[in-house]
Design a protein around this nucleic acid. Sequence first.
DNA 1: ATATCTGCAAAGCATTTGCGTCACG
DNA 2: CGTGACGCAAATGCTTTGCAGATAT
Lengths: 142, 142
Amino acid sequence: MTAISRIEQICIDKGMKMTGQRRVIARVLSESDDHPNVDEVYHRASVIDSKISIATVYRTVRLFEEAAILEKHDFGDGSARYEEATDDHHDHLINVRSGSVLEFHNEEIEVLQRKIAASHGLKLVGHRLELYGVPLGDDEKE
Amino acid sequence: MTAISRIEQICIDKGMKMTGQRRVIARVLSESDDHPNVDEVYHRASVIDSKISIATVYRTVRLFEEAAILEKHDFGDGSARYEEATDDHHDHLINVRSGSVLEFHNEEIEVLQRKIAASHGLKLVGHRLELYGVPLGDDEKE
DNA sequence: ATATCTGCAAAGCATTTGCGTCACG
DNA sequence: CGTGACGCAAATGCTTTGCAGATAT
């Protein structure tokens, strides 16, 4: 019997029914520090439980997202990507050469965003900020 | 024979083969000042040419996007939305109550974005910034 | 016990594509 | 005329769902 993963503990605290599959998916996501899509979560979970179904991964990931345990992102590659939700908000900087994703937080931008929304009579309830870049000096090599 | 639409003129200048369908789609998009998805473009085009196929709309919209005539956006509603590309860059502020889309430009944010990318050794080649808001004072009414 | 979850396969959606026909240049 | 565009319907890729059996509490 393995230790309880971070996400499994959150599920328990929320009183969710914990099946073997949910435990496996919770573990996989707790141990991921990238932004896997459902297929990647499915493959990582399959290593632990080879009989798990991708439909269950879809259902569980949606469940976790609705419970604010995961955040869902769309980086424009056709599939949704997930990461564990944390209290420290951040945005994403995507290296389009390598596909790697860096996280950053800039309070100045956050403030400006709220200001812009307010100037149009709106209260900001969410935002999406993604930066796409290439390694410096890499674009002239082509 | 109707006048040549703004987008049709661009197509002609670029030496693209202008079919009746492309002319219709160019006209529809030139006259739109919102952010229609393919289905909406298809319906608007059908009014002018009822025999047009949605496959042609998909192909044409992609063609225009690749020719930098259109910009493609994803506002998270499951379908791609399009608008005529202009030289003045702007981002979007979406009213989640009404679904209406406001455009804005903030140079301060643009500068900060380049700075952030640079601080991670990347040159900014693109970005996506969308703000989602509700009318001020509207959220406590619920 | 029993409401909920899982696996499977089928269905849904937005989008793309193969193919025979048609039309712009 | 010939290359490329069109319409149709089938195919695709991601995601959801109906159903019958399995499972957590």
